[in-house]
Every structure is written in structure tokens, then in C-alpha cells.
Design a protein around this nucleic acid. Structure first.
Lengths: 134, 134
DNA sequence: CGGTATCCAGCGCGATACTG
DNA sequence: CAGTATCGCGCTGGATACCG
């Protein structure tokens, strides 16, 4: 098959092992960890085990589809475990694996920093966007 | 134009009267920081000041459009400064602001962790993918 | 060199309906 | 309660062409 010239550029770029690059699997892992809901899930699970609906309720605004999808990705990556209780009302609990805890910690550090400094960012944005649209 | 994607998403949700409980503007800031190219830009600028084409070359596989867009977002958020030298061949340099350095540090921590542990994740994925495909 | 404007394909993602 | 299946919109992002 014909290889796109940009792909060649990507391959040539792989010389730096220290910096993860576009065609590196690290990218996919990082995408899962920093995805819109993935990071929130990890932070919540860092506190304690949660049920499916609990996660959806606490996060808010996430569809069941995306919640399930995000959970599946994180589970497939080995960041969390899914435990099903065969009770009459189905009950499923999600909790972090040791690997997941390791991953969630720097994520929480990052999100904490953002929350602490978001006001600064908003001030900068306001200067550059004096008339925001409604 | 330069409308934040997350803003659009929020607007669309609100328009449809969904239960979206805006998860605070931190979400949009985090999106910029952890975006596909945004995180790489910050990491590179953490080392030193870069020119536009240098960033594109070192990252690899990024279109000019996305590179410019990512840089604009990070600049609008106050994470980096854009310096134009009015020379005959145009020259533009990007460097981190103090705020950008603060933001880039936890990001680098996270990406470093991912690079160190990506092999573990790949092993887990391989176990869960017993029958690749025909 | 360092962008911007336009077009267009892909698919992410929400809404809805259905299952166990 | 905890999902899965399906559909369709419109955002994301690459390619291309064009300016200062």
C-alpha cells in the first residue's frame, strides 16, 4: 500500500525515545487517561469504589454510552476493575487497580493545578475576548 | 473562527435542554492542556523557546492548521507568548509564560509516567485481546 | 517562513430504544 | 440497575491553495 509522506515523517521522528510521538502507543494510553470523562472517572475512583450510576450521577452530563465506553477503555488498559454482583437488581462496581492509582495520581495533580489556576486563565481569556458571544 | 470546541459542545447541550451540569470552565482549560498537540507543545517549550517550524518538525505529523490552532489556544489561555520578528523571512518564536511553565510541569510528570508504564498497559491489552483477527 | 481560508471526509458523540 | 444497538448530526482535523 502507498504510504503517505506524512507517515514517513512520523517514522523518521521516532528517533527520540524520550519524547512520545504521534505514532507511539503512549499516545493512545494518554488519550484514554486524559479523555473528557476518563480523567474524571479516575479521580472519582481514586477516592473510593463507585457504581456505574454513581459515576454518572457525580460526573453529570455524561451519556451512558460514553460512560460505558470510557470505563471499557480504562478497564482494557488495566487501570480499573469491573466487578459484577449477580443480584436481582444488577450491581456493578468499579475500582482502581494499583496501576490505575499510579496513573490517577499525576492526573489529579494536573487537574488540581488547573482548578487552582483556572481563574488566572479566565482573566487572560477575558482580555483577548472582550465581547464573548451568547 | 477561534471558538473553543468545548464551548460549542456546551452550547449545543444547553440548547437541547439536556441535564448538562457545566463542569466548570476548568474542563476547557484542561482540554487545551491535554489536547493531542497541546501537551507536546508545552513539553517542548519547557526545554527551550521554539520557532513555529521547529515545533512542527520536532512533533512530527501535525498539520500547520492544527499546530497554529493549538498555539493560539495556549496563547489565549496565557500559557505561552508569541513573539514576531519583523525580518524579511518572517520569524516567530514561542516560549512559555510562568503560568505555562507551572502547567507544563504536571503534564510532563503525567506523560513521563505514561512512557514508563506504557509497556504494562500493552501487556494488559494483549491479554484482553486473545483473538486479534483473521 | 508563518501563517490563514476553504473544502471535505470521517467519526465522535448524543439521543433514543431495547435487553437482561 | 447496567448496559447494548442503532441512527444521524456536526465537530474535528487533514489537504489544498493562497497571502504578508
Amino acid at each position: 500500500m502507498s504510504t503517505s509522506p506524512s507517515r514517513l515523517l512520523l517514522a523518521r521522528k521516532a528517533r527520540q525515545g524520550n519524547l512520545y510521538v504521534a505514532n507511539c502507543p503512549s499516545r493512545g494510553v494518554l488519550d484514554h487517561l486524559t479523555s473528557r470523562w476518563g480523567s474524571l472517572i479516575l479521580i472519582l475512583l481514586l477516592e473510593r469504589t463507585h457504581r456505574f450510576s454513581e459515576l454518572g450521577r457525580e460526573i453529570g452530563g455524561v451519556s451512558e454510552k460514553m460512560l460505558a465506553q470510557s470505563l471499557q477503555q480504562l478497564e482494557a488498559d488495566g487501570f480499573l476493575t469491573r466487578t459484577v454482583y449477580p443480584t436481582v437488581p444488577p450491581k456493578v462496581e468499579y475500582s482502581l487497580t494499583p496501576l490505575g492509582s499510579e496513573a490517577a495520581t499525576p492526573i489529579k495533580t494536573l487537574t488540581d493545578w488547573v482548578e487552582l489556576n483556572v481563574s488566572k486563565v479566565l482573566k487572560v481569556r477575558a482580555k483577548r475576548h472582550p465581547a464573548p458571544l451568547t
